[in-house]
């Protein structure tokens, strides 16, 4: 340790201030009794009360959660099954599928959004010409979310498949299991960590998405980020501060819990060794 750690620590501290000052400002002003975003007049919990009485926010929140759960569930099932399929493919088709799979990951969200919108609009016009009443809404939103979620599930399951010991699967077959049973009892437990982390990524991506939802929903269906967007357009709405604070606290609590669980897991493993 010849070199001093001080410059590195100073830099880390400065970046931490840069990253957290705005968030702390939001939290601070969520308790401001005045509508102002710049001067603090007194303590209040009014904005939280108003937030919980805000029908639009509440329905947007429940829609977001339902959408995230459903799309993560569908994407996890399709993604896991497809990952097994892709893993078993020959090299060329596998490469093509993986390249296509990467498209929604690398494309800017806005392009994924508008391109899906073009398809949905075309489809809706087609249905209407058949006399079926249709429009952009929850269904298109769900399709869009599943579409951008599946790639993440596949990308987190595939590495687990590659780490598999192929012999266990063949042993299961030799012992008389049919392929389906062998997959469920031997392969699935092995790749489970990948499946779970894929599902978690899908769920959070879905909750967090604004741009793709913005382009693929109709006028009546609003997710929470879309609700937030229209609130920021109104400039002064301290309820956003309250909402941000609640979200920040939730995320912080979740991350701390995950960290503690991981640390405990690590200790258990060490003890076993």
């Amino acid at each position: 340790m010849r070199r001093s750690r001080v410059p590195g620590r100073v830099l880390q501290a400065l970046v931490a201030v840069f990253l957290y000052a705005p968030i702390l400002v939001l939290i601070f002003f969520s308790f401001n009794s005045d509508k102002s975003r710049v001067s603090f007049k007194g303590f209040t919990l009014d904005w939280y009360k108003r937030l919980f009485e805000n029908e639009q926010v509440l329905s947007a929140l429940s829609l977001t959660l339902i959408l995230a759960l459903l799309s993560a569930l569908i994407a996890t099932v399709i993604g896991t099954v497809s990952a097994v399929g892709i893993y078993n493919m020959k090299k060329r088709p596998r490469k093509i599928l993986l390249a296509l799979n990467n498209v929604p990951v690398v494309n800017p969200d806005i392009i994924t959004g508008v391109s899906l919108m073009l398809v949905f609009v075309l489809f809706v016009t087609f249905l209407r010409s058949l006399g079926v009443g249709a429009g952009l809404g929850f269904t298109t939103l769900l399709i869009a979310h599943v579409t951008f979620n599946i790639p993440y599930v596949i990308l987190s399951v595939l590495p687990k498949l590659r780490q598999l010991n192929k012999n266990t699967y063949e042993a299961a077959l030799d012992l008389g299991a049919n392929p389906l049973r062998a997959y469920m009892r031997v392969i699935l437990p092995e790749i489970m960590p990948g499946v779970v982390s894929g599902a978690i990524i899908a769920f959070t991506m879905s909750i967090d998405d604004f741009l793709i939802s913005y382009f693929t929903t109709g006028t009546s269906v609003q997710t929470l980020p879309m609700r937030i967007y229209s609130m920021t357009r109104k400039r002064v709405s301290p309820e956003i501060n309250a909402l941000s604070t609640l979200m920040f606290v939730t995320v912080l609590a979740l991350l701390i819990i995950i960290n503690i669980l991981q640390a405990r897991d690590q200790k258990k493993k060490e003890r076993r060794l």
């Binding site: 399709i78 993604g79 099954v81 497809s82 097994v84 399929g85 892709i86 893993y87 078993n88 493919m89 020959k90 088709p93 599928l97 296509l100 799979n101 498209v103 929604p104 392009i111 994924t112 508008v114 391109s115 899906l116 073009l118 398809v119 075309l122 399709i143 869009a144 599943v146 579409t147 599946i150």
Partner: peptide
């Protein structure tokens, strides 16, 4: 085993390839 990816291939054709071609 490769056939397991068939549903997703259709899905990608509909919601990844066609949208890009439409653009």
């Amino acid at each position: 085993g490769g056939l397991l990816a068939a549903p997703y291939t259709v899905w990608m054709a509909l919601f990844t390839v066609i949208p890009m071609l439409l653009v």
